[in-house]
């Protein structure tokens, strides 16, 4: 009996040893997985953005306002501001979203819906968190897969696939856990930037109430349970 237990222990140790030995090799680098994903993300970002570029507002009062808030968050958190490609879109829909390769799109509808810069900063920090935590590519890889994404970049999937991809990123939510992760990170960013997360919570609460004065609420329809989020953001902000 003792001998069998000893043999079981040796066998398990051997299996664990093989695993530990194999995990010493950087397989991600060996199979170029990270490099491939980065290149794919860059190409997708360029392609999606090329289709939206015409509607973009790249200067003016609204752009400067958002730009200064994004710069403040980046500066306080040690992010390179020039890595984020900020775009303001003339659209009445209350929406903001991140695209591959760090393109961040903010609708004028959102800028008009917020009551102050703290509220706007909250939404921006949330979108920056999605980018920093690589949620955009995680979502695309899960929902479309490597093969389809590669065929989009080579043009094999056709123009419709780009529209589908854009629709997915601008009008559907991330996984509940990823949304919460982005909220928690956003609070961290806001605190470091000296901005109260209460503004973000207030905005979410108002969206949760579905305030008629806010117009079309895309951002909220893609981010469920706003009141619950407002609650934990307020708690975490204390």
């Amino acid at each position: 009996m003792k001998k069998t237990i000893l043999q079981a222990f040796i066998l398990l140790s051997l299996a664990a040893g093989i695993y530990l030995l194999i995990s010493r090799v950087n397989w991600m680098k060996l199979f170029r997985i990270e490099k491939m994903t980065d290149a794919l993300e860059q190409k997708l970002g360029d392609m999606v953005w090329a289709g939206m570029e015409e509607q973009s507002i790249e200067e003016g009062k609204e752009y400067d306002r958002v730009d200064s808030l994004v710069t403040a968050i980046c500066k306080s958190n040690g992010f390179k501001r020039d890595k984020i490609k900020l775009h303001i879109m003339g659209d009445s829909e209350v929406n903001a979203f991140a695209l591959p390769d760090r393109h961040m799109v903010v609708h004028t509808g959102l800028i008009n819906a917020v009551h102050n810069n703290d509220e706007l900063s909250g939404v921006l920090a949330h979108e920056i968190a999605h980018m920093e935590l690589s949620h955009v590519m995680k979502k695309l890889l899960k929902q479309m897969g490597y093969t389809l994404l590669i065929s989009i970049t080579t043009g094999e999937a056709g123009g419709g696939a780009i529209k589908e991809l854009l629709g997915m990123l601008s009008s559907t939510a991330y996984d509940r856990k990823l949304e919460k992760d982005a909220d928690i990170k956003a609070i961290e960013y806001l605190k470091k930037a000296g901005i109260s997360p209460n503004g973000f919570a207030d905005f979410l609460y108002r969206l949760g109430e579905k305030d008629g004065s806010l117009g079309s609420l895309s951002w909220i329809s893609t981010h469920p349970d706003s009141k619950e989020r407002a609650k934990y953001i307020r708690e975490a902000g204390r």
């Binding site: 950087n26 397989w27 690589s134 995680k138 979502k139 899960k142 991330y174 996984d175 990823l178």
Partner: peptide, 10 residues
């Protein structure tokens, strides 16, 4: 393959 928060890792 199916969960957004799990990725291919080392």
């Amino acid at each position: 393959l199916f969960k957004e928060d799990t990725q291919i890792s080392n």
